[in-house]
Write a protein that binds this DNA or RNA. Structure first.
Lengths: 207, 207
DNA sequence: CGTTATTTTAAACGCTTGTTTAAACTGTCT
DNA sequence: AGACAGTTTAAACAAGCGTTTAAAATAACG
């Protein structure tokens, strides 16, 4: 495995665990078993490393998600919100074959990016991958045409909040669920639990 | 105003803005216009300062929230989930008279605490203020008795995610809403928008 | 007033951070 | 072999961090 990939892998899991600000380059390079200076040699700076970690996931996820949403948008009969949100399941879970713990790592990284570093990652995603959001909005509009653009805006952000926050702390939550309810839960289960929640939320009656 | 309170006020708004890890004692003391060493003199350490900032809010909010939930739990007819969640509105908004921008500051702090510093604030809240959670769960159970304890657990965490995440980025979201929809939105509006969302989410049909 | 306590202050502490430097090493091609 | 690009390395850099120190300033009290 190349130095570059060793760094990316180590950075990814540490970032997901402890956030971007909370992870030092020295932790990354020592987990990756490479020299400290290798990060700046291969990526230029810590910020560029963060972008590289996120891009690796977005480039894998984005086309799958696009295809999945396209099916929803082009099907003949009006989709339900449950169907729209279920379109995320397979693309997200397929990140697990792309990389070990890919799904939860990616969602945790997303969560970190929204709270760490004062929204620079939000800028990065919305400018670098705007079509994902566009298609998603279109799909929701087809499912619930009475929703105004403004309400869609707010409810989609509520949805992102639910998903991202849940996934940021999914490890802790799964541990609690395991000890309190003696039931094994994995990331796929959590996704299946959260979808009816957000679908109902977005579909809430107006006024 | 006492040095101690100057520090608390400055720390509060900086913590809300940039997170606990992202705010240095030097930023706090320079905004508060006090000496750097004053923090360690009055609070002992940065961690204790964080606790003090949160306690100031929890001690204000907790009794109001308890009273509000008690009304719901003791009323004769079964409450709706919308009523249960609406019980949060007044106690949360009353933080605004307690302190300028109190509502959004507090909710942002909550969000920070869940993602920064690997869950030490979660421990702090659940051990120091467990009765708030207990009463809330009871209220939800009255409104939707068919929900299993496990489903309540998950859906309440989804709810916390929605609210906390939304409030963590509420400033940015309100800015976007303002420029995209030319509509003034304040924190009370956001709360009124989020309640139907989470009420519907928690009330989602089973299976 | 003088004598304690309490609070504030400037300076320094040791440590970690991201980044840079310049030398050493590796493999490739003529 | 020699030369050259690419890569790795140890060491140092300046800057920022939370915390501690000891002296100066202020307040409280008999």
């Amino acid at each position: 495995m190349s130095t570059k990939n060793k760094i990316l892998d180590a950075a990814e899991s540490l970032f997901a665990d402890k956030g971007f600000n909370g992870t030092s380059l020295r932790e990354i390079t020592s987990l990756a078993e490479v020299n400290l200076a290798a990060v700046n040699y291969h990526f230029g700076s810590k910020k560029e490393l963060i972008k590289a970690v996120m891009s690796r996931y977005m480039n894998e996820l984005s086309p799958n998600l696009q295809a999945s949403l396209l099916v929803i948008c082009q099907q003949e009969n009006k989709p339900t919100l449950n169907e729209v949100f279920s379109a995320f399941i397979d693309p997200l879970l397929s990140l697990n074959v792309f990389r070990e713990n890919g799904t939860s790592n990616f969602l945790q990284l997303l969560g970190r990016g929204y709270t760490d570093s004062q929204g620079f990652l939000r800028w990065f995603l919305t400018t670098q991958y705007p079509e994902v959001i566009t298609n998603f909005v279109t799909a929701v509009q087809r499912a619930y045409p009475e929703l105004s653009a403004e309400d869609i805006f707010w409810r989609l952000h509520f949805t992102m909040g639910t998903v991202i926050f849940t996934m940021s702390s999914s490890d802790a939550l799964m541990d609690i669920a395991k000890s309190d309810f003696e039931q094994q839960v994995d990331i796929a289960d959590v996704i299946r639990k959260v979808i009816p929640f957000v679908a109902s939320g977005v579909g809430a009656p107006l006024r």
